[in-house]
Design a protein around this nucleic acid. Structure first.
Lengths: 340, 340
DNA sequence: CTGAAAGCGCTTACAG
DNA sequence: CTGAAAGCGCTTACAG
């Protein structure tokens, strides 16, 4: 590895000052350096193409200025998920702003503890998203505790027993409530909510929100239908089965937009085209949403802000030693489409 | 920062061996350690929750086992671009496989040299994607050279003057050729190709491929129409202007799928609904493609493989000191949709 | 305003 | 099979 790298020592030698002075210039401690000296050091740095070694600085100061984003997933292409991409975008932009870099790592759910993000100590803090099937709470709990690092978890309800953790999530409960209220205001008396079978905290919240709204009304019923997964085929099989049994709901609330689009195909094939025969709603309004006609009534996710708020929270924690807040909930917004 | 971190020294003390032995166990140099010793060390590591310091290892061995992915962009949400997300997915998965981690950084094009990925020395190599407006070749060239790191550039033609670089790209030229041949085989005699005004090497290649195919046929003409950007409104304005001038091409080749979808709206509003009146094609077939009806005839991009091949190339270079290949081109595939 | 010394936690020769 | 010593390139006290 003849990287012929330039070190502070060489800069110091070139300008004939101590490495200490070079360090002060690099770290902008200008009050500790004479203006003329500062200029000569800066010139040498430029000329020799010096770049500080992040490793040396991290070793000495025990700060890496780097944050890890760990995604537990079942599928290899996790950034293809628009929610995850938006989180990463928000994190990346805000961390750059704060002088941190972002290390991304995908981990198969069943190889939880194998992840190098967990095995090596290379970041000042971690953000964690549990997409896909959920590890047992106990395993996860034990693992995270053993890391001794500040951790932000996305879209989870915070465990009160965890001291150095912070949950950052969108107000899925309000979103569920908004949608249920919206279809009820338009006359729905029987509501079908289609969800994936896997227990996802965010989706449970959406269900809970819808239930709250329904409970507050008279004579409205809500049924939960579990599809084997979020995939089109599973959603369509579940919904077809339900309709075959002779039920016709006034409104179908899908757990997200992709599922709503899958449901749309089933409904329109049966002459129940939304919004005329049955109302239909989704959740999240990511970019692809605009390519589907008719536009699905949905709830807009603040996914990118979730990422940037996580960055803020983590850096605040690193600077101050403790999370100022351990459950950050961002508002969502109802988007009226053409399917209700 | 009382991180109360555990070090090799403490493990060594706990088991009463030297740190050297602990190091050997951690790095799997099993032939240098007795089986009984190995087991006791491993147990202590587990018990005390020891995680090796990446910084210390990097400082000593001058290997970070980390690769940077730098995206030059004009918009903040760069991972929302499906091409970039797919590259990142491919990189991330393959690097994890090879024991490396991935650091992602977005950089505004006009703040090129400010990027911390360029200012700090924290990776063993870099991948670079120039999306958005292009920096001047000279600035970029100078900057990259000064980094003294192996670099993979995506979707660029390799500069033969660069010794320690490798281009990884898809065969855009073949893609352009496939599409032109496809519409000509279906009777197109006049072809309009709609491209963004900004010079993008990948798009130039698509144009060059289409030109080759057209040149090889008799009596077929191809016209290039430059939109002010890739955005829907700009594409639609350019195309409307062209049609208003009295031209009606047999086929419209859009530079990518998003532009094709924008063009579709203009064409069908004028009674030129594809494929009956005018044929229409896109490029890339990313995930959102399936949500648009009718399916656009397009060319499938191997974006994720681009990422994993880049990871392979970079790690090979790091291990062997030199890129085995400095221009890697992956094949594309024509996807017949309903618009031709 | 400037500098000499110590040390962060590892790995790399080398010696037994 | 095991270990003592040196040193990677910085920053952190501290002394002038």
């Amino acid at each position: 590895m003849a990287k012929n790298k330039v070190t502070m020592k060489e800069i110091a030698a070139a300008v004939d000052v101590s490495v200490m002075t070079v360090s002060n210039v690099i770290n902008g401690r200008d009050h500790l350096v004479g203006e003329e000296t500062r200029r000569r050091v800066a010139a040498a740095i430029d000329e020799l193409g010096y770049r500080p070694s992040a490793a040396a600085r991290a070793l000495r100061s025990s700060r890496t200025f780097s944050i890890g984003f760990v995604v537990l997933y079942d599928e290899r292409k996790f950034l293809g998920d628009p929610f995850i991409a938006a989180l990463a975008d928000g994190l990346c932009a805000q961390l750059a702003e704060l002088g941190y870099s972002l290390t991304i790592q995908g981990v198969f759910t069943d190889e939880l503890s194998e992840a190098t993000a967990f095995r090596r100590m290379e970041t000042d803090g971690l953000c964690l998203l549990l997409s896909g099937s959920q590890p047992t709470k106990y395993n996860l709990h034990t693992l995270l505790k053993s890391l001794r690092q500040p951790i932000v978890v996305f879209q989870e309800s915070v465990e009160t027993t965890e001291p150095d953790m912070c949950a950052v999530r969108q107000d899925d409960r309000a979103g569920g409530r908004f949608l249920a209220e919206h279809v009820m205001a338009r006359g729905a008396r029987s509501i079908l909510m289609v969800v994936p079978r896997v227990e996802w905290p965010a989706i449970s919240e959406r269900v809970a929100g819808a239930r709250e709204a329904v409970a507050a009304s008279h004579g409205v019923t809500m049924t939960l239908l579990a599809a084997d997964s979020e995939k089109d085929a599973d959603v369509q099989r579940a919904l077809s089965g339900y309709l075959d049994a002779g039920h016709t709901p006034d409104a179908v609330l899908a757990a997200n937009d992709q599922m709503a689009i899958a449901a749309y195909a089933v409904l329109s094939a049966r002459g129940l085209t939304p919004p005329n025969e049955v109302m239909l709603t989704g959740f999240n309004r990511f970019d692809f949403w605009r390519y589907f006609q008719p536009r699905i009534t949905t709830v807009a996710s603040p996914a990118e802000q979730l990422g940037s708020r996580a960055a803020d929270a983590l850096c605040q924690r690193i600077d101050e030693g403790e999370f100022a807040d351990n459950d950050i909930v961002l508002p969502v917004e109802l988007i009226q489409g053409e399917t209700t």
